[in-house]
Computed example of a mutant assay.
Amino acid sequence: MVDIRKNAPATGVSELFQLLRDGRPRTRSELAELVGVARSTIALRIDSLMELGLVAPVEDAASTGGRPSSRIAMQADTKVVLGADVGASHLRVGLTDLSGTCLADSSRDLLVSAGPERVLDTVAELGSGLLEQLGRERTDLLAVGVGLPGPVEHSTGQPINPPIMPGWHGFDVPGYLQDRFGVPVLVDNDVNVMSMGERQAAWPDVEDLIFVKAATGIGAGIICNGTLLRGADGVAGDIGHIRVPGGAELLCRCGNYGCLEALASGPAVARKLQESGLSAANGRDVVALVAQGEQEAVRAVRQAGRDVGEVLSACLSMMNPSVIVIGGSMALTGEHFIAGVREVVYSRTMPLATQHLQIVQSVSGMDAGMLGAAMLALHHALSPESIDEMLAARV
């Protein structure tokens, strides 16, 4: 993982907190040696962090004689952040502690096409309900993270011409939610935050990873050299709108023909099954039919995996990741979808690029977006700059 201490300014208290963010208890002497200051200076900085409720003493360390040395560690349970995963047809909202552990979550079916006000009001409603459920005050909330199913301008948090989100272009999502929660709001593309959540949960030491979400839409979050790759305009990884030969003249929701999403997404597979006489209105129905052993559904899902594998083969040659993670509702079909991906990727890509490659199902499952959005909020809330702001507000 990237060493967050590299970017921590030498402001003393905030620098010290970055050392303690890993959750490992340390004595004052150990901290003084690591930071390179006197033990008395460390004691003052620890006192400041304790006043903020961010660190506290834990069980005594073994002593070599005399008074035992108290160890200091981050207090993960004193504050919380809110993560919101806004999908094309659902919302999933969760509260996590400062270690990223989910404390409570809630979900609701809601089309993103209902518009920003209705969707974000529902996020605020669910988030406020979770705070009340846990007996938390609004002052316990440090930040909110949101993942949206479309391109997002990272500097402003505003959606930019999202193809499946009518009424969202240029909408001030951070400002709208900040008015309701009174804390900083961070916004990014949903697959980007999923890649962050999955890496945190299962692949913390992997530097090059592609997370593929295959659900109502198809997209990819790219971790390159340990850093999330957004691109110049925030659309890196938008593989769902790459034209594929098998798409023929299928009309995509973005207005173009032949996109991967129009061929291999959950709704696209459902339409194919309808044409075969099966009852399937969406990706969930496809998953249910596969679980029932319906062979036509299994064949359609396997082919959808092959179609995604075609695009990933090109991505693999460009990015050379060591792990490809498959998430979203289509991953819930078990090995059938992933087997199709593997079949094409391993047969179409140079052996040197695949000799150590793992193609796996998401560990976080349907929680990946919510957990990733919470990580987005955590990285901001616990940054050196944010800690400095907390200290300044205390004076």
Score class of each variant (00 low, 15 high):
residue 310 E to F: 07
residue 285 D to H: 15
residue 271 R to E: 11
residue 274 Q to G: 15
residue 311 V to P: 00
residue 296 E to F: 02
residue 298 V to C: 05
residue 296 E to Y: 03
residue 271 R to Y: 08
residue 302 R to A: 13
residue 309 G to I: 06
residue 310 E to D: 07
residue 311 V to A: 04
residue 282 N to F: 00
residue 303 Q to I: 12
residue 296 E to S: 15
residue 273 L to D: 12
residue 302 R to N: 06
residue 312 L to V: 06
residue 296 E to D: 05
residue 270 A to L: 09
residue 297 A to D: 15
residue 284 R to E: 05
residue 271 R to P: 10
residue 295 Q to F: 08
residue 275 E to P: 01
residue 292 Q to K: 13
residue 315 C to T: 06
residue 313 S to V: 00
residue 310 E to N: 11
residue 272 K to A: 11
residue 278 L to N: 09
residue 284 R to I: 09
residue 301 V to E: 02
residue 311 V to H: 04
residue 287 V to N: 05
residue 296 E to Q: 10
residue 282 N to Y: 01
residue 282 N to R: 10
residue 307 D to H: 15
residue 275 E to L: 15
residue 314 A to C: 13
residue 312 L to A: 05
residue 277 G to S: 12
residue 303 Q to K: 12
residue 309 G to V: 09
residue 301 V to M: 05
residue 300 A to N: 12
residue 288 A to R: 11
residue 274 Q to M: 14
residue 306 R to A: 09
residue 313 S to D: 06
residue 283 G to W: 00
residue 304 A to W: 01
residue 290 V to P: 00
residue 307 D to Y: 14
residue 303 Q to M: 12
residue 308 V to Q: 05
residue 295 Q to W: 11
residue 289 L to M: 12
residue 270 A to I: 14
residue 280 A to F: 01
residue 316 L to D: 09
residue 303 Q to F: 07
residue 314 A to I: 14
residue 293 G to P: 05
residue 314 A to R: 08
residue 311 V to W: 02
residue 315 C to E: 10
residue 293 G to F: 05
residue 310 E to H: 08
residue 277 G to N: 08
residue 283 G to V: 03
residue 301 V to F: 03
residue 313 S to F: 01
residue 304 A to N: 06
residue 294 E to L: 01
residue 316 L to W: 03
residue 285 D to M: 09
residue 296 E to V: 10
residue 308 V to T: 13
residue 293 G to C: 03
residue 287 V to Q: 04
residue 271 R to G: 08
residue 308 V to L: 13
residue 276 S to T: 02
residue 293 G to E: 00
residue 313 S to N: 04
residue 315 C to R: 04
residue 309 G to L: 00
residue 288 A to P: 03
residue 290 V to C: 01
residue 310 E to V: 04
residue 281 A to H: 09
residue 314 A to S: 12
residue 284 R to H: 13
residue 301 V to Q: 03
residue 288 A to I: 10
residue 287 V to G: 04
residue 295 Q to H: 15
residue 315 C to L: 14
residue 280 A to H: 06
residue 277 G to A: 09
residue 282 N to T: 05
residue 316 L to C: 14
residue 289 L to W: 03
residue 275 E to Y: 07
residue 289 L to T: 05
residue 272 K to F: 04
residue 274 Q to P: 01
